[in-house]
Design a protein around this nucleic acid. Structure first.
Length: 550
RNA sequence: GCGCCCGUGGCUCAAUUGGAUAGAGCAUCUGACUUCGGAUCAGAGGGUUAGGGGUUCGAGUCCUCUCGGGCGUGCCA
């Protein structure tokens, strides 16, 4: 908000100087306090466009800008930066705005209602969700919340691969376990089948519903029943895990349903119409190498079944048909080979491929006492999302996932996440919130409240750290915009930690509630209640609770 | 081989997307509880941003090469 104002002031200054304006200049908060509250590179960027010396242009701009009452000082520095210092009263007014905005502080119409499709997790419906899904869930759900908060229109979707090869194997795996229950075990469990214990649980459940009657129907019907049962139960499991993790989807898109709607054939016929399919070796190929892929890909296998590429193309066509401005696929790092093929198809079909964005979330190492926990799908030794939530809790898990850039590999220290001390950043943030609540409660006991507070007394907030805290809070709106623009919710995790830290320092240094100085106490309470609010907003956007007691 | 991602104090990560003196936490060391929640605070040490070259007023960030790590490169999904 303050940034925008300064940006505009500079623009009008440049106009007054009758210069050609390069609008790419920025207004930033310097990381060195001596450089002022804000600084701009406007003179440097515009000097070039007007063939001037940067410092000379800066001097002229300063002359104009210094006339405004909002600025305590405007100075030229270094190679041509212009540094602004704002009057305290500007910050006091801004603080009142934050308090007035309550839970809407930081929200805006910045996204202009742009329709965004967020597809994430999309784990196979063949087992419980794992920690990779947990990271994707934390990431996608928080991005969704942030985007909605700053005025985009996000829509989250989980794509369920409930058709094709892997669900056939799922049905077969269940059948093996079902037979075992009835005293008919296989000598050797097939390596490609699913080994997890949960399949045995499913067999028991199925048995309690259907008993032995599945032996008396045709194999095809039996496997179909197995498949439907397993898919439904696993879906329920996944939804339950996601609920525990506070991750919600606007839509679950079923591949099976897409297939029934004939959309695969539709996609294939579009590709054929575009003359980029051909037959070779009894298979149908897509000439994807014409569209940026390394080589051509098979669409229909010699056995007559489509490869996974076909439903995926079809699914993405539905995304385009549904009219989203931007489509974001959140994928694991093992999928990037796949995107080239998909994009080739979209280009072939003359779709605006730039509207499809792919975010790759990197792998996770779970650490226990500094040791990487080795996981193996084959032996069924995996740590599930539920295990993780049981171990460290939802809040800690979400924070740890969100504290990293999506493109960064992540070492998840389970010991640290479990700790209830300052070493653990989640508790550090939550503690600040709880502490503020407690202080305000204490004030109430001493009969000091904000009900009769006159904001004229805000001028009593004159300590540097008090102004720093206000400045930090004022960063939230543009920070959230940046999180949304760059699809990087991790910035918010760092931000809330910084703000919490400033509060803890403040608390240690200054007494907030002091019955002998009512107006000062009220002013400080006013400040920290704003901090409480901003922490709560930030944590909520990350799907983390803001407790009043811990 | 080719493609994508990554490389920042001992460890895990930031760095306002090209800005000024690269910041936090953990770990280590020193201090602070008869005081609003010590789940906290004050302080110290620790860096040639893997390495070379380039682009420009200015590079951890962009380009290029080299080295190292991860992933991909199926008629599996």
């Amino acid at each position: 908000m303050l940034k925008d104002k300064i940006y505009k002031d500079i623009k009008s200054g440049l106009r007054q100087l009758r210069l050609r304006i390069n609008k790419n200049y920025t207004v930033e908060i310097p990381n060195v306090a001596e450089h002022g509250d804000f600084s701009t590179n406007a003179a440097m960027l515009n000097a070039k466009a007007n063939n001037m010396n940067p410092r000379e242009l800066a001097e002229k701009l300063v002359e104009i800008l210094a006339k405004s009452k909002s600025y305590k000082s405007v100075e030229v520095a270094g190679p041509g930066f212009i540094n602004f210092k704002l009057s305290k009263s500007v910050y006091h007014k801004a603080l009142a705005e934050i308090v007035k905005a309550k839970k809407t502080f930081g929200s805006s119409d910045y996204g202009k209602g742009k329709k965004i499709l967020l597809e994430y997790i999309s784990a196979n419906p063949t087992g419980p969700l794992n920690v990779v899904s947990a990271r994707a869930g934390a990431y996608g759900d928080s991005l969704h919340r942030i985007m909605a908060f700053v005025g985009f229109d996000p829509f989250s979707e989980f794509y369920v691969n409930d058709a094709g090869n892997q669900v056939d194997i799922l049905a077969e795996s269940l059948e093996i376990r079902y037979r075992e229950l009835h005293g008919d075990p296989l000598e050797e469990f097939p390596t490609e089948a699913y080994h997890g214990e949960y399949i045995k649980d499913l067999a028991v459940m199925l048995n309690s519903v259907d008993g032995s009657k599945l032996f008396h129907i045709a194999e095809k019907d039996r496997l179909e029943r197995m498949k439907d049962f397993a898919l439904e139960e696993i879906h329920k499991m996944q939804v339950e895990s996601l609920n525990r993790f506070d991750v919600n989807f606007d839509n679950w898109m079923s591949e099976k349903k897409l297939r029934l709607e004939g959309i695969l054939e539709e996609a294939l016929s579009y590709l054929a119409e575009a003359h980029c399919t051909y037959e070779k070796d009894d298979a149908v190929w897509f000439s994807s190498s014409q569209f940026g892929d390394e080589k051509d890909r098979v669409l229909i296998k010699t056995d007559g079944n489509p490869t996974y590429l076909v439903p995926d193309i079809a699914y993405h066509l539905t995304k385009y048909q549904r009219g989203f401005d931007v489509m974001i696929d959140v994928l694991g790092p093992d999928h990037h080979g796949h995107v080239a093929k998909l994009k080739a198809a979209l280009i072939a079909l003359e779709m605006e491929v730039d509207r499809l964005e792919v975010v790759y979330l990197q792998h996770i190492n779970l650490l226990d006492n500094g040791e990487i926990i080795k996981m193996s799908k084959r032996t069924g030794k995996i740590i599930t999302m539920d295990d993780l939530i049981d171990e460290v809790g939802k809040d800690a898990a979400r924070y740890f996932f969100l504290n990293r850039r999506p493109s960064a590999h992540l070492d998840f220290d389970m010991e640290l996440a479990k700790k209830k001390s300052s070493e653990n950043p989640v508790y550090y943030c939550q503690y600040a919130h709880a502490r503020i609540h407690s202080i305000l409660k204490k004030a109430k006991k001493e009969k000091i409240s904000l009900k009769d507070y006159d904001i004229k007394n805000l001028k009593k907030l004159d300590k540097p750290i008090e102004l720093d805290i206000i400045k930090k809070m004022l960063e939230l709106p543009s920070l959230l915009n940046a999180c949304a623009d760059h699809r990087e919710p991790h910035r918010l995790a760092g931000y809330v930690h910084e703000l919490a830290g400033m509060f803890h320092k403040y608390y240690a240094k200054y007494k907030i509630v002091d019955a002998d100085h009512k107006e000062l106490s009220q002013s400080r309470m006013y400040l920290i209640s704003a901090v409480k609010n901003v922490i709560a907003i930030s944590l909520d956007l990350m799907g983390i609770s803001a407790p009043e007691k811990m």
